[in-house]
């Protein structure tokens, strides 16, 4: 087996009296689409922030290829946050240009514009973009420096079914390019289609992990929705529509 690209070793993150993440341990293989699932407050976003290096664990460690997160780690990762505002009055073109300048070897803008189909709204004020257009732009910004690992925090939340499927197509292309994708999602269908490996969290702890097929087979349930219900007593399907 190859060396994992990222590993977490017994990490814990505490904010005051609140234990957001409580002793997680798992590996993420290179080129894998890795899914973090869990109900609201399970610690998905905190775990993602720890993997991104945006937060430091209270105890435990996050390892990149077996060592501590290296200097310049941010140049190797791309992040699409759950809710990201952009500067007012700037267009997708202005934003691509701005973010390209942050890196030494950005991808050609024309390639990003084509890959994420930004042409039709390239010079529109970003405040006037639809949800799907906005997510495609944010993904392009996360990919501007051609990172090997891409973090996606609930990338399709709030999108209509068609925009969601459009974005799945884009993510599939990224997978095919061999990038490591790490995503959180509320949608079991999304996890089943995109993810090679899943970790299901509840109250900051790992409930179970494995490939979607293995998890379904082991639990003897028809699908991930049923598995999730069995493990957490909660159904994500009902909460999908109310998600922000």
């Amino acid at each position: 087996m190859t060396e994992p690209v990222l590993s977490v070793r017994n990490i814990r993150k505490v904010y005051g009296d609140v234990v957001a993440v409580d002793g997680l341990d798992f590996d993420i293989q290179s080129g894998q689409c890795f899914g973090l699932l869990g109900p609201n407050g399970a610690g998905k976003t905190t775990t993602l922030a720890l993997l991104e290096g945006m937060e430091r664990p209270s105890t435990g460690s996050v390892l990149y290829r077996g060592g501590p997160l290296p200097k310049g780690y941010q140049e190797r990762i791309g992040i699409q946050f759950q809710a990201t505002a952009l500067q007012d009055f700037l267009s997708p073109y202005d934003n691509l240009r701005l973010f390209s300048k942050f890196y030494d070897a950005p991808l050609p803008m024309a390639q990003l514009i084509e890959q994420f189909r930004l042409e039709e709204f390239l010079h529109r004020d970003t405040r006037r973009l639809s949800g799907g257009q906005r997510q495609r732009l944010l993904l392009a910004l996360a990919l501007v420096h051609d990172p090997e690992i891409v973090f996606l925090d609930e990338p399709t939340t709030g999108l209509d079914p068609r925009s969601r499927r459009d974005l799945w197509d884009v993510l599939q292309v990224l997978k095919d390019q061999g990038r490591t994708l790490i995503l959180t999602t509320h949608y079991m269908e999304e996890a089943e289609i995109l993810c090679d490996h899943l970790v299901i969290l509840s109250h900051g702890k790992v409930l179970t992990e494995g490939t979607p097929a293995t998890l379904i087979a082991q639990a003897q349930v028809p699908n991930l929705d049923a598995l999730f219900l069995q493990l957490t007593g909660e159904s994500l399907v009902a909460s999908d529509e109310g998600a922000p």
């Binding site: 945006m54 992040i79 946050f81 952009l86 500067q87 973010f99 942050f102 890196y103």
Partner: peptide, 16 residues
């Protein structure tokens, strides 16, 4: 305003 909207957090994730 940038901080409240999350834009600064987005910039933090870059080498800036």
């Amino acid at each position: 305003r940038y901080r409240q909207s999350g834009y600064l957090r987005r910039l933090k994730a870059t080498p800036l």
